[in-house]
Simulated assay, not measured.
Amino acid sequence: MEKTKILLAEDHLVVRNGIKLLLDAQDNFEVVGDVGSGKEILDLIATGLEADILITDLTMDNVDGLQLIKELYQKNIGIRVIVLTMLDEEQYVAQSFRFGAKAYLVKNVAADEMLFCINHVAKDGRYLCEELAMKLVDKLINKEETRSCKIDPAELSLSSRELEVLELLGEGLTNLEISKKLFLSKRTVEGHRQSLIDKTKSKNTPALIKFAIQNGLLK
């Protein structure tokens, strides 16, 4: 059986050795190189070393993981990259996939899930670990729930003049500036602003603006 050749880039020796032991115990994997920086990976590849998959951390000295992924992609080196990191922020996930990574795992991933991911990527699949996938799903659910709780502007019975005042408040204009722009008295503008606050049950003008943005009255 042909084995999947794997490179490891991880600057913590204990972590790297642990991953290597796990992979070496699999009949279908062969770790052909394990180093502590992205530069060492590039040096190994430059010597002609061939591998199917690279498992790399993101935070390393001498060429970090993101830079490594980018360079491999730019040089058109046909190695599939799996990110294994402590960083669980969306920006790192997005950047990694944008630069060409095939999978993203956080370091508390279970051994079974890591092995599944490697086998999946070896078959040219893409993978996001369960923890981050569910985090994104929860975020989408919360977003949908927030959207479903939005008030229909028609229910507020806002007049066209009140909407004009609201728009100008959203632009940061003062009552006096609005009165001059709409050719109204300052007191009239103040009345419209207070009416907006009352109808939206807002505490003050900043809360009114926040409410208006959340409910699509302002962009």
Rank of each mutant, 00 (worst) to 15 (best):
H12P: 01
E50S: 09
E10R: 06
N119E: 08
E144C: 08
L218P: 01
E155D: 08
I53F: 04
D57A: 09
E162S: 03
K199M: 05
A25R: 14
G36R: 07
A25K: 12
L66E: 02
A94W: 02
A111N: 14
Q26R: 09
E145R: 14
A133I: 06
Y104K: 11
E155W: 02
S195W: 13
A46N: 11
F116L: 06
I178S: 11
E144S: 07
K135S: 14
I151G: 06
F211C: 01
Q74D: 10
M1P: 05
V109H: 06
F97I: 09
L54D: 00
L72Q: 04
Q194K: 15
S159V: 10
A122R: 03
N62A: 10
F211S: 01
L44R: 13
Q67I: 06
L166Y: 12
V35A: 02
K5I: 03
T188M: 11
D43T: 14
H192Y: 15
R193N: 01
D24A: 12
C117Q: 00
I213A: 00
E167S: 09
D27A: 11
A94P: 00
K20G: 05
A51K: 12
I82G: 01
I141F: 09
D34P: 04
A101V: 08
L8K: 13
I77Q: 00
Q214F: 06
T59F: 11
T47S: 13
D27Y: 08
L166R: 10
Y127N: 05
F183N: 13
E30G: 08
F99L: 15
A111G: 07
P206C: 06
V32K: 03
G65Q: 09
N28H: 11
L168V: 06
N108F: 08
D34E: 13
L163W: 10
E90P: 00
A154K: 14
E89A: 10
L54C: 02
A212G: 02
K3P: 07
R126D: 10
K180R: 13
N175C: 14
V15F: 05
K150A: 03
G65L: 07
S185N: 13
